[in-house]
Simulated assay, not measured.
Amino acid sequence: MHSVELLQQLDFIKEIDKIKYIQRRTKLFGSDRNENDAEHSWHLAMMTIVLAEHSNEPIDVLKVVKMVLIHDIVEIDAGDTFIYDENKDHSNTDEERAAANRIFGLLPKKQSEELIGIWEEFEAGKTQEAKFARAMDRLEPLLQNASNNGGTWKEFDVSYNKVYEKKQVIEDGSTIIWDLAKGIINDSVEKGILSKD
């Protein structure tokens, strides 16, 4: 006979498979195929492992990996909000809170509380781990759009100022990576794949 906790964990594991179906606006590097949330989260976890040394302060890498792997699970219920959406705020919403409670609530109480706490920490963006996780979350689509001749910037007529404003969060996690990101943004303007207007 299996424990109740194991069955709860398996229910959660089955439920989060749905994240593979959540399509993002950004496309894979050098591709015309949209990325899904599972691919995005995996990529951020790898970026965290590889780039952690560039954090402004020492970080708990495992905690950041947990953050980036779970941060978009709420989109199973709440859907993906495009970062440049003019009509819907990209900040924590009531829908995301309800999704976090439902999905993480499938787990045994202790694990549920841990993952909700990590998700809340990411959303608040106050700790160094959250700042670095958010830097990774903003860096990946920047690299994708630069590799795709402007990608969603061109597709949705996103301006330099809007990109700069949204990507500046990177600086809170890593000034070194922010310097690199600024260079990519400016190069994108020079190449004509990001509008300065």
Rank of each mutant, 00 (worst) to 15 (best):
T152S: 12
A133R: 01
L143W: 07
F156G: 03
S174D: 09
S112L: 06
N149C: 11
A124R: 09
I177M: 13
L142R: 02
K162S: 11
T127H: 01
G125V: 09
K154S: 10
N149L: 12
I170A: 01
E155M: 09
S159D: 12
E113A: 14
E120F: 07
K154Q: 10
S159F: 04
M136R: 03
Q144N: 10
W119Y: 12
S112D: 10
F132G: 02
G117K: 09
A146S: 10
W119L: 04
Y160V: 03
Q144M: 13
I116K: 15
I118R: 00
S159W: 04
W178P: 02
Q111V: 09
Q144V: 05
P141R: 02
S147R: 09
I170M: 05
V169P: 00
G173R: 01
V163D: 02
A133S: 02
K110P: 04
L115K: 00
K166G: 02
E120A: 11
I116A: 11
K154T: 08
V158Q: 01
Q168W: 06
P141S: 10
V169A: 15
D137K: 03
K131W: 03
L115M: 08
G125H: 12
S112P: 08
G117Q: 11
A146W: 00
K131Q: 15
E121S: 00
L180H: 12
E114R: 13
W119I: 04
F156I: 03
Q168T: 13
L139I: 15
E114W: 08
W178K: 08
L139C: 11
N145T: 02
M136A: 13
Y164C: 04
A146T: 04
L139S: 05
K131V: 03
Q111M: 13
A124Y: 03
V169D: 05
E171K: 15
Q128F: 07
I118P: 00
D179F: 07
D172V: 06
E140C: 07
A135T: 04
Y164G: 03
F156Y: 14
K167V: 08
A130Y: 00
R134G: 07
I116D: 10
A135D: 01
F156K: 11
Y164L: 15
G117L: 07
E120G: 07
I177Q: 04
G150Q: 05
Y160I: 01
E114L: 15
E165K: 14
K110H: 11
D157P: 05
Q168H: 12
D179S: 13
K162Y: 08
D137I: 03
Q128M: 14
N148E: 12
E165I: 07
D157I: 08
E123P: 02
E155C: 10
E120C: 10
